[in-house]
């Protein structure tokens, strides 16, 4: 039986996750991951074919930090704002007292600099959540992009 507090804490983690991305708080978003984290975005096509190619692969938090620094300082990309809708958060398994396997669906809408919106990406998060005392963070996060032909380009994280 999973404690109700842990369930709420996981709900809050996913809310904070979407909120940070939607409000361009990418540095705060980083705080939602543990130091030894893995973050990847994978096209559904490769999952189906059993092939390892990703769209983004950060094998530790420093690579994730480098991504954000690069987005802030080096990369040029489409001017947009994000809106994440995250639902069906489902605890699939308790690996041990501190780690849970969690899945959720997401839909990500983007608005361009003239106010036009579109459904940019949708798919599934397959995650490992690590509890340090009562605070959950992502140990791993795999974003499986269902609409795997990426519209325009991929810049800010999903």
């Amino acid at each position: 039986m999973i404690e109700v507090e842990k369930r709420f804490a996981i709900e809050d983690l996913y809310s904070a996750y979407g909120s940070c991305l939607d409000n361009d708080k990418l540095e705060e978003w980083l705080d939602l991951f543990v130091e030894k984290c893995v973050y990847k975005i994978t096209p559904k096509q490769n999952v189906t074919l059993g092939l390892p190619v990703t769209l983004m692969l950060c094998e530790n938090k420093n690579m994730l930090r480098d991504r954000i620094v690069s987005l802030r300082q080096a990369n040029e990309y489409s001017i947009h704002t994000d809106k994440h809708l995250i639902s069906n958060v489902c605890i699939k398994a308790e690996v041990d007292a501190n780690i849970m396997m969690v899945e959720a669906n997401y839909a990500l809408f983007q608005t361009d600099n003239e106010g036009n919106g579109s459904l940019y990406s949708f798919g599934t998060y397959i995650d490992e959540v690590f509890f340090n005392k009562n605070v959950p963070k992502f140990l791993s996060k795999t974003v499986i992009v269902e609409n795997w032909s990426i519209p325009h380009m991929l810049s800010t994280p999903i």
């Binding site: 975005i41 983004m56 692969l57 991504r67 990309y77 380009m153 991929l154």
Partner: peptide, 20 residues
């Protein structure tokens, strides 16, 4: 696979092409 971060729709050195 790690160096794939450089290329593709979200590549650190290629994402800009689509925008340009």
């Amino acid at each position: 696979l790690r160096q794939l971060n450089l290329f593709g729709p979200g590549g650190l050195v290629s994402m800009e092409d689509a925008e340009a």
